[in-house]
């Protein structure tokens, strides 16, 4: 068996891969932002035991955490296109679907990993000592102020290791974008395979690219953890 990577010299393939890589990174970043918004908002709903919202959050978390992300993506993609929300491009006058494959992937990543993030952040909040909270309360902090200034800053720090896993999972899950025709890195790879039949070589490259992206994310998370470390707090 010989490996042939000569196709890598083709500028068209390089372009597909680079554009795809950009799309993958952009989807992941947007997904991470959405994941954090959902994670913090959901954890707050449960933490404050907000009527209705607490139950609703718990149900949604179970729903999104316990079903395959691919099923969720297809469901979102077909449901939203069925609803058929469109917006009109003011320049061309063309009608374009509001929920493109790209939007659906970002939403799906945000919801799936966001549901897991809710539980991760919640466990971080539970790890904040009740004495620390009481100290804040005795100084006149309201429940909301205590959450914002004391519980969340400490709880988020405690959730960094578990959240790193979740971010890596999100980056990997983004590869299913290819199945709703989003031109991400996997999409580029599939195209190249169809044209060159160098399936193994292409997959080796894709494998390496994902390892690199995920490793960079892990390194970034470690940097953040080191930067916000609480001296003398055993973290």
């Amino acid at each position: 068996m010989t490996l042939d990577f000569s196709w890598l010299a083709d500028p068209l393939y390089q372009q597909w891969l680079l554009r795809g890589l950009g799309t993958t990174i952009l989807m992941s970043l947007l997904g991470i932002v959405l994941m954090f918004i959902i994670g913090i908002a959901g954890a707050a709903c449960i933490h404050f035991r907000l009527p209705v919202l607490e139950t609703l959050t718990t149900i949604l978390v179970e729903l999104f955490r316990n079903t395959p992300p691919l099923v969720q993506l297809f469901f979102l993609y077909f449901m939203l296109s069925e609803i058929g929300l469109t917006l009109t491009d003011s320049a061309t006058g063309r009608s374009i679907p509001l929920f493109s494959g790209f939007t659906c992937v970002v939403l799906s990543l945000g919801l799936y990993n966001g549901a897991i993030a809710v539980e991760i952040i919640r466990s971080g909040l539970l790890a904040v000592p009740s004495q620390t909270v009481e100290g804040a309360r005795s100084l006149g902090y309201s429940r909301l102020q205590t959450f914002r200034h004391v519980e969340l800053p400490i709880g988020l720090r405690m959730s960094i290791p578990a959240m790193t896993n979740n971010v890596v999972s999100l980056i990997k899950t983004s590869s299913q974008a290819v199945l709703v025709a989003v031109a991400d890195i996997m999409y580029g790879a599939t195209q190249i395979m169809l044209e060159t039949f160098r399936n193994l070589e292409v997959m080796i490259l894709i494998w390496i690219i994902y390892v690199v992206i995920a490793s960079l994310a892990v390194v970034a998370a470690r940097r953040i953890a080191a930067a916000v470390r609480i001296p003398g707090y055993g973290m």
Binding site: Q131, T132, E134, G135, A136, S138, L139, G140, Y141, Q145, H149, V150, P153, I154, R157, I230, G232, Y233
Partner: peptide, 28 residues
């Protein structure tokens, strides 16, 4: 009415000076 606790109950993620200044600034 201020209170001092057996377990100190300080804010571990803030410096000593910030522990003193936080509540007067943020609450009062």
């Amino acid at each position: 009415v201020a209170m001092v606790f057996q377990q100190y109950n300080l804010f571990p993620h803030r410096t000593v000076l910030q522990n003193l200044t936080m509540a007067p600034i943020q609450v009062l």
